[in-house]
Amino acid sequence: MVQITAMTMVGKQTRANRIVAGTSVPHPCGDPSAPPDADRALRKEIVRTALEVLQTDVEQPTVFTPKITFTAK
């Protein structure tokens, strides 16, 4: 399992071993303030990263950051 969340601290505390940093608590996969195309590309990159993380060895709760740009609140 890979957990996508904007609260990686809680993810680590609850011992999720594979964590991908999401954009924001109310919308972890995407950015509603971005144009729809950019938002979709952003989401695809997050999911792509998550799939990559599923293929990665880890030993303990580890946070991976997708290569994305977004406007954060």
Partner: peptide, 8 residues
């Protein structure tokens, strides 16, 4: 508090 992103 309660920034919705970890950056915040």
């Amino acid at each position: 508090t309660r920034f919705e992103s970890e950056l915040g």
